[in-house]
Simulated assay, not measured.
Amino acid sequence: MMAKTKAEKKISDIVSQWFYTDSLKFAVCSLHSIVPNPAITVPFRSGKKRIEFSPELVEKFSDTELSFYLNLEVTRILLGHPYQRKPYNAKPLVLAMSSDAVIWQLNTRKRKTDDNEYSKLPGVQYLKQMIGPHATFCDMNFEQWYKYILDIVVKAKNAESAGTTDNEGLEDLASMSELWEEDEEALSDIKNDIEDAIIKEGYGKDGGEIERAVCDSVDFSFDYRRALSKFRQNVISPNRKLTRMRPSRRYGFKAMGSRYERKANILIAVDVSGSITDESFEHFIHAVKNFFFLGIIENIDLIFFDVNLKLSKPVSYKKKIDLNEIKGRGGTNFQIPCDFYGEHKSDYSGMIIFTDGEGEPPVIEGSSNVLWILDSRLNYEKSRQWITKVCGCQATFLPF
């Protein structure tokens, strides 16, 4: 086995330390091969499941400087920049500048000041040179920054022909994105690492300020409307009726038409146990009031539960709900609403349970149509495995 070079050892020491202090950064490094590339003129660049580094530059860095630049590249990877779909005929320089701008924006927002080390990134320095050092921006994502900076660069090239700009060093910056190419598998791996860190709170002992900013900025949102749409189809499909009075759109009167009668009754069970925050409870009620299928479902009944049912009978959605009547904040027993649904199954086409997922899995016998809606992505990830194992259950979460 060949001995590590000085540059390799310095990087290895930082990554090894992250194993104990910052599991998310360590996980990202573990997904990539960290290899030297003497030909590059930037400290680090990533892509194609590699993190390349310049041995010459790394050996000159202090431990603090090296940690900064390696952390910068890991943040770039966490944001998904090296693996996102690139714009048509993408300009490497603009891609690199856009990535620098997003990271600068993240740190400026979290620290509430532009006076930090990220403001000295080459892409940010060039941007400020072109538009003025005191310019302010609205928060923009990677694609928006790309379009914005592309326009600036095009104008700068026109100015360059007149000898009015200095583009020294921009070729080095452009080389930083040479390895970037779309890779869904890599993005999925990064997403899983971030989700694990959220669930385990593995941001590091320093509080993980930048990692939290990254998690807040990366759009890994789940399209909950897809789950609701599927649930809706399941509850109204039994009410499909054939008719010769209405022709098929495709075959006319050669085939019978069909129509759906709006006779689906839905039971919605709202968790009011002690683990439910006031904010989550308000989100639940807001979601009920704004449910997308209110124009299709004929009747919605509400029940509230913790260790037992909180009202003697369901409340119709059409009736104004007096929240003062609901006394909850005890433990959680999912068997209670499931048993109620089972006893009144002939009255309902399906049931929706709003909850945080904190409780023992219930037993549901026979076929059922139950959709669990969790109050957050975190609780969804914690609970979705056991929920989907319960007979006839699906799971999604509120995007609040």
Rank of each mutant, 00 (worst) to 15 (best):
R329C: 12
D306H: 09
F292N: 05
P337K: 01
D356H: 06
F253K: 14
A269H: 01
S316N: 11
T355A: 09
F305R: 01
E325S: 15
L309V: 06
V270D: 02
G330M: 13
N308A: 10
E282A: 03
F334V: 08
L267I: 09
K320F: 03
D322K: 14
G357T: 10
D301R: 04
N333D: 15
G331F: 12
I300L: 08
N290L: 03
I297T: 08
I326K: 12
D278E: 09
P337I: 01
F292P: 00
L323V: 12
H286Y: 08
A255Y: 15
I303F: 01
N333K: 14
G342N: 14
N324L: 10
F340T: 06
K310I: 04
F292T: 05
I266L: 13
K327E: 14
I336Q: 08
K318N: 11
E343R: 14
E261V: 13
G331V: 10
T277H: 00
F293V: 00
R262N: 15
P314M: 02
K263M: 12
M351Y: 05
P314Y: 01
L323M: 15
D339Y: 06
V288G: 02
G357L: 04
I352F: 04
E325Q: 15
V307D: 07
V307H: 04
R262T: 12
A269R: 00
I303M: 06
A255F: 08
S273T: 05
S346H: 14
S346M: 11
S275R: 02
G295N: 14
K313G: 02
Y317W: 13
H286S: 09
I303C: 09
A255W: 13
V288C: 08
Y251A: 14
N324P: 07
T355Y: 11
L311P: 00
Q335E: 12
G328K: 08
F304N: 01
I321S: 05
C338I: 09
G252Q: 13
F291A: 05
E343Y: 14
G330V: 13
K263R: 14
Y348T: 10
V270M: 07
P314N: 04
N324I: 03
F293A: 12
S349F: 00
F334R: 06
P314E: 04
K313I: 00
K289Q: 10
